[in-house]
Design a protein around this nucleic acid. Structure first.
Lengths: 168, 168
DNA sequence: AGCGAACCTCAAGCTCCCTTGAGGTCAAGT
DNA sequence: ACTTGACCTCAAGGGAGCTTGAGGTTCGCT
C-alpha cells in the first residue's frame, strides 16, 4: 500500500475529531485509556483506521447510556484485534448493549410506577420505594449517574420496611 | 414548643444519615449546596425537620435518574419555604419528575430501536443515529451520564447526514 | 466531674472525564 | 525559505460529587 493510498483510508486525529464530533483532546484521552488505537507516521503523528469512527460512535453511545469508560474499554477489547471488525462483530457488541438498554428501560419504568405509587400514598419512602432503594449492587456504589446500567433487579424486593417519613 | 418536644420532631445529622442511608458527609455537602437546610442548636449542631427525610429521598431518586444536584436544588427550591410542604406539594414535584422519567424512557427506547436499526444497516453512524446524536441540547454539553434527563427530542430529526463509517 | 460518642469546621484528597496551556515539531502552501 | 496550521507531549486545572483527616466542641450518661 502506497503512502497516498494509505491517506485515503486513514484519518488524522483532526479528521477523526471533526467527523465524530469529539474533541481532539478527548480522542487523545481515549487512546491513553486504551479505547482506541492508532499507528504513528514517521513524523510521530497518529493515524486512525476508519473503523475507529465506529469505535468512537460506540463509545459515545455507551456513555450516553451511562456506562463508564472502563467498561466500554472492556467491551471494545472483545472486538478482534487481528482483523478489521466485521458487521457481525459490531452487531454482537451492539446486541449485548441493547440488552443492557432493555434492562435500564425496565428499571426506569418500575421507578416511574413506584413514583406514582409513592405519590398515591403521599409518602416518599426511602425504604419501601424502588425509588431510593435500587435493588442492585450498583446502587450501593454510591449515588449519581455514574453507573446507570444496572443489572436489572432480581425481583424479590427487600422486605417492606417502615415508611421513613410517614411514621413518627 | 419545648426542647424535648422538639427532639421528637427533629433529627440530628446522624439520625438523618442512618434513616436515609446517606453519609453524614454527604448531608453536609447537600446542605452546603443548598439542597437541604437545618437550624442550629445552642451548641451549633444541626437539627433537621422531618420532611428533610423526604427531601433526601427525593434527591437520591433524582440522582438515580441522572439529574445533577444543581437541577435538583432548583426543583426543591420550588417547595414552599414558609410552611412544611404538604403531600400535594410533593405530589406536584414528583409529578414533574415523573414526566421527565417518561421522557427519559421514551428516549432510551428510541435509542434502543435505533441501535437495532444500526445493526441492521451494519452502520453505527454518528450523524444519522439518535445514538450518537441526541437531538437535545443536553447532548451538546458533552458526553457522559451527567445530564440524562433531556427534553425529549422535538421530532424533526436533523437531516440525515452521510454515514460516517460506511462511505469512503 | 469525667468519659465516649457524636457533633463541628475547614482543607485536602479522590474518581471520572476531560480541557487548557506551555513548549516544541511536522506538513503543506506560497 | 518561510509561514501557517495541525500535530506532538506532558503537566496542571476543572467540575461534579463526595470522602477523609485533623483539630476541636458538645451531648448524654454514669
Amino acid at each position: 500500500m502506497t503512502q497516498s493510498a494509505r491517506n485515503r483510508y486513514e484519518l488524522t486525529v483532526g479528521q477523526l475529531a471533526e467527523r465524530s464530533g469529539v474533541a481532539v483532546s478527548a480522542l487523545h484521552f481515549y487512546e491513553a485509556k486504551g479505547l482506541i488505537h492508532s499507528r504513528r507516521t514517521a513524523g510521530n503523528q497518529r493515524r486512525f483506521t476508519r473503523d475507529t469512527l465506529r469505535r468512537v460512535a460506540f463509545i459515545r453511545v455507551s456513555q450516553r447510556v451511562g456506562i463508564p469508560l472502563a467498561e466500554i474499554r472492556e467491551a471494545l477489547s472483545r472486538l478482534p484485534e487481528e482483523r478489521t471488525p466485521t458487521v457481525d462483530d459490531w452487531a454482537a457488541l451492539s446486541e449485548s448493549w441493547r440488552e443492557k438498554l432493555d434492562e435500564r428501560i425496565t428499571q426506569l419504568q418500575r421507578l416511574r410506577d413506584d413514583l406514582t405509587d409513592c405519590i398515591g400514598c403521599g409518602c416518599l419512602s426511602l425504604n419501601r420505594c424502588a425509588l431510593a432503594n435500587p435493588y442492585d449492587e450498583l446502587g450501593k456504589q454510591g449515588p449519581g449517574p455514574r453507573r446507570l446500567l444496572v443489572s436489572a433487579a432480581k425481583d424479590p424486593r427487600p422486605p417492606a420496611a417502615e415508611c421513613i417519613s410517614c411514621e413518627s
